[in-house]
């Protein structure tokens, strides 16, 4: 009995810490922490699909876009309450995730990347052209939820941090479950997995649905946090940003999905660097990590034997 809920301790402790710290933070600190929380949700979902289930997706920003626009439109046009709009955004993203999952079922490795790339571009194009609904390139304002007694920024901080802790814990439980083990088996070898009696069709679809849900919820929260969205924010650059996060943090690691967003977002905020420099640093981190430490920081921490300097030396010698 005592041990059966031990997994609840860490998230509960974190919740208490963040709840206590919240009121003493200034608005900028609240914003940065909320932004990190949103990207932790997004990166966790992406990592479940890419790192655990091994499905190579480069259109993940599409789910962020779908969630963001769904939340905005449902609140503006249908006056739905915030919580309902966020969940509906997640569900809508799941429907799109399943559709893409079905299209890519017969395909493997880089063909997945091509289809999801085209899907990501299509979503941005539709959002730009469907002006009646999305206001095109001009973008949409997104309302902020009001919680009595809390400032708008503190309310967003509690919502995003709380959601992130719950969803990360759900992902931790998921990867330790039968479903998580099936994901890893499919990643390692689809043929071997199906020989073991794992339905690859079913688990690949589950992976797409779950990661789309995380993306949709993250999108809804991101839109609310930023208060304004345009289609341009969800282009390939956005996917590359999150890809950088999970590669730095560690593919196939939940801890990595938390480390990555912290580094990328704090780096961008502290250095106050321009969009172009962010693109360059993200690209350089992506390239550097995939060559020198393909399992990311989580991988380095796990296997201390990974000889980084030896790798650099052997690379230089080969030149």
């Amino acid at each position: 009995m005592a041990g059966s809920f031990s997994w609840l301790r860490a998230p509960a402790a974190l919740l208490v810490v963040f709840a206590v710290v919240g009121p003493v933070l200034d608005n900028y600190q609240l914003y940065v922490l909320s932004l990190i929380a949103v990207y932790v949700i997004f990166a966790t979902g992406y990592n479940l699909l890419m790192g655990f289930a091994g499905q190579f997706d480069v259109g993940q920003a599409a789910f962020l876009a779908i969630g963001a626009y769904a939340a905005a439109i449902l609140q503006i046009h249908l006056q739905l309450p915030f919580a309902v709009a966020v969940i509906a955004a997640g569900v809508l993203a799941v429907l799109f995730g399943l559709a893409i999952g079905v299209v890519v079922l017969p395909l493997r490795h880089f063909y997945l990347a091509l289809v999801t790339l085209a899907f990501g571009q299509t979503v941005v194009l539709v959002l730009s052209l469907w002006r009646d609904l999305t206001n095109g390139f001009q973008g949409l304002p997104v309302p902020r939820p009001e919680i009595p007694g809390l400032s708008s920024n503190l309310a967003m901080y509690y919502i995003t941090i709380g959601t992130a802790i719950v969803m990360v814990q759900a992902a931790r439980n998921l990867v330790a479950s039968r479903i998580g083990r099936a994901f890893v088996a499919i990643r390692e070898s689809e043929i071997a997995a199906s020989v073991l009696g794992i339905s690859t069709v079913r688990y690949r679809l589950i992976a797409y649905a779950i990661s789309a849900f995380y993306g949709g919820v993250a999108g809804a929260l991101l839109a609310t946090l930023l208060s304004y969205i345009t289609p341009d924010a969800f282009r390939l650059t956005e996917t590359i940003k999150v890809l950088t996060m999970i590669v730095i943090g560690g593919m196939g690691s939940i801890a990595g999905s938390i480390i990555g967003p912290i580094i990328v977002i704090l780096g961008a905020e502290f250095l106050r660097i321009s969009q172009s420099f962010q693109e360059i640093t993200n690209g350089a981190l992506l390239l550097g990590f995939i060559i020198l430490a393909p399992m990311g920081i989580a991988g380095l921490a796990l296997h201390r034997t990974t000889d980084l300097f030896g790798k650099v030396r052997s690379l230089l010698r080969r030149q």
């Binding site: 880089f110 650059t237 890809l243 693109e279 993200n282 690209g283 350089a284 992506l286 995939i290």
Partner: peptide
């Protein structure tokens, strides 16, 4: 070349990183 033995997907990720660097530059 540094990714030749690493498989197809890491090479794609590496090229996406390089593409981002080129775009920013």
């Amino acid at each position: 070349r540094p990714l030749m033995s690493a498989g197809l997907l890491p090479r794609v990720v590496g090229l996406m990183g390089m593409a981002a660097i080129m775009k920013g530059l």
